[in-house]
Amino acid sequence: MERGVDTWWDHLLDVLRTVGEVSERDPHGLTVVLGREGSSTAVVEIVMTPREWKDMTGIGGWSMSAGAEHVRQLVLDQPSNKRYLVYGLYVLRPCESPEIPLNPLFAQLAELAEQYPGGVPGAAWVAHGRERN
């Protein structure tokens, strides 16, 4: 894997290389192969682009080193039944697939939106002043 012009991404790669073999993941992200107790290997796929890494560290307020160490620890602590660390809303979450599972409440809202594309008949959002309960 060639070093690029993104110092933060390169630093993340360097830190992850301290715990295992790091390679690019198709279509984006990183694959980390590390040895675990009993000489078995574990594979953790980080589903995140360099741009998402910048967002995660920038919005999260991480320094370059602290952010990379955080991801390193996530890789080391990854549950054996979950292969993926998936980026979403400025954090990496352990997942069983490369997509974050849909929250059931959001699935219900999506179903309602599909049933009523113009909005639910008779429903409205209303804002009240402080004097009303």
Score class of each variant (00 low, 15 high):
residue 6 D to F: 07
residue 6 D to Q: 11
residue 6 D to E: 07
residue 9 W to I: 03
residue 10 D to G: 08
residue 11 H to M: 02
residue 11 H to Y: 05
residue 12 L to W: 04
residue 12 L to H: 02
residue 15 V to Q: 12
residue 15 V to M: 05
residue 16 L to H: 03
residue 16 L to F: 04
residue 18 T to W: 07
residue 19 V to Y: 05
residue 19 V to Q: 08
residue 20 G to F: 04
residue 21 E to V: 11
residue 22 V to Y: 02
residue 23 S to I: 05
residue 25 R to Y: 11
residue 26 D to F: 11
residue 28 H to R: 15
residue 28 H to L: 10
residue 29 G to D: 09
residue 29 G to A: 11
residue 30 L to C: 04
residue 31 T to S: 15
residue 31 T to P: 04
residue 32 V to P: 00
residue 32 V to I: 06
residue 34 L to C: 11
residue 35 G to K: 12
residue 37 E to Q: 13
residue 37 E to H: 08
residue 37 E to R: 15
residue 37 E to P: 05
residue 38 G to V: 09
residue 38 G to W: 04
residue 40 S to K: 15
residue 40 S to N: 10
residue 41 T to M: 13
residue 42 A to P: 09
residue 45 E to C: 13
residue 45 E to H: 14
residue 45 E to I: 06
residue 46 I to L: 15
residue 46 I to F: 07
residue 46 I to P: 04
residue 47 V to A: 02
residue 48 M to T: 02
residue 50 P to Y: 11
residue 52 E to C: 10
residue 53 W to E: 10
residue 53 W to M: 12
residue 54 K to C: 03
residue 55 D to L: 14
residue 58 G to E: 02
residue 58 G to C: 01
residue 59 I to V: 14
residue 64 M to F: 03
residue 65 S to G: 08
residue 65 S to D: 12
residue 66 A to G: 09
residue 68 A to K: 00
residue 68 A to D: 00
residue 70 H to F: 10
residue 71 V to I: 02
residue 71 V to A: 00
residue 71 V to Q: 00
residue 72 R to I: 03
residue 76 L to G: 00
residue 77 D to H: 05
residue 78 Q to E: 14
residue 79 P to V: 07
residue 79 P to N: 11
residue 79 P to I: 09
residue 80 S to D: 12
residue 83 R to Y: 06
residue 85 L to A: 09
residue 89 L to S: 14
residue 90 Y to H: 12
residue 90 Y to N: 12
residue 91 V to N: 06
residue 91 V to Q: 11
residue 94 P to E: 00
residue 95 C to I: 05
residue 95 C to L: 10
residue 95 C to R: 09
residue 96 E to M: 14
residue 96 E to D: 15
residue 97 S to K: 15
residue 98 P to F: 09
